[in-house]
Amino acid sequence: MKNFQNKKVVISGGGSGIGNAIINELYHKGTRDFAVIGRNVDKLKRLENDFPEAIFLLFQGDISKPNSIHEFVNVISNSWNTVDVLINNAGVVSAGSLESISDDDIVAQININVTGLILLTKHVLPLLKMSKEAAIVNVSSGLGLIGMPFYASYSATKGGVRLFSEAIRRELKDFPIQVITVYPTVTATPMMESAKTDAMDTPDLVAQQTIEGLQNNKIDVILGGDQRLEDVKKNINDPKEFDKKAATMYEALLERTSNHRSM
């Protein structure tokens, strides 16, 4: 996808963080029509002030609830004849030892990070198929490529996003729909405010690389540079050897996740 002018974009979790940065990047490339679902109405309304030339379809809803998705897509269908870009960005995290994470938090991570993403894609898909040039952007995580201690349930959901992207890309081979998966590293978003860590990427960097990936027809955008690519390769080819590296990070991850929850 080379041109973002006159595109109609649907995004989940666009009120802050990476989602907001992606809206900003698209806005500066000429996109003016956005449909945004989020749980915080104040963050949604702020979009209209931040991007005054854009036309927003704002919907307060929770993608973990199928009824919210159905209502949101009905709003879109009543206003637009097509969708050009779907950005599945909404996500939550509850980290720590598996035994310490509540059952409700485990279920919520699955419902928002995976089930809601799949259902939103399913119900927007007929509108994407009406576009002459469409794209689905699924925001996963570096922890969807490499499972790390104290992120077991979160990694499971983000790994699910990775495989869903792979499967749906192959399923849609007869349609002009690009499917791209984004794997951010630790990023300075509200989701990370409770994590004890310093070195973080910016949401703007993730957004820029995401849009570049769309423009260059990539299927994966992996943040973290050459070291992350090397780690991913080692984790696939010699997982027991990578276990040793993970062990050296154990105490730091234990400290980072001692209060890392953004639900």
Rank of each mutant, 00 (worst) to 15 (best):
N6V: 06
V10E: 04
S12T: 15
G15K: 04
S16M: 09
N20M: 10
I22E: 04
I22D: 08
Y27S: 13
G30H: 14
T31D: 10
R32Y: 06
R32T: 15
V36D: 03
G38H: 10
G38F: 06
N40Y: 10
D42V: 12
K45G: 04
R46W: 06
E48A: 13
F56A: 06
L57W: 02
K65A: 07
S77R: 14
W80G: 00
V85H: 06
S94Q: 12
A95Q: 03
A95K: 01
L98H: 13
D104S: 14
V107G: 07
A108M: 11
N111Q: 15
N113C: 05
T115V: 15
L119M: 14
T121D: 02
L125I: 10
P126L: 09
K129G: 04
S131E: 00
S131A: 03
V137E: 00
N138A: 08
Y154S: 01
Y154W: 02
Y154K: 02
A156C: 00
L163P: 01
F164E: 01
S165F: 07
R169W: 01
R169Y: 01
F175Y: 15
Q178P: 02
V179G: 00
I180M: 06
V182Y: 01
A188H: 08
A188T: 07
T189H: 05
K196D: 13
A199V: 11
A199N: 12
D201V: 07
D201K: 08
P203G: 11
P203A: 08
D204L: 10
V206S: 02
Q208V: 09
N217T: 12
I222E: 06
L223I: 14
L223F: 08
G224E: 01
N235Y: 12
P239T: 01
P239N: 02
P239E: 05
A247W: 01
E251Q: 13
L254S: 14
H260I: 00
S262A: 15
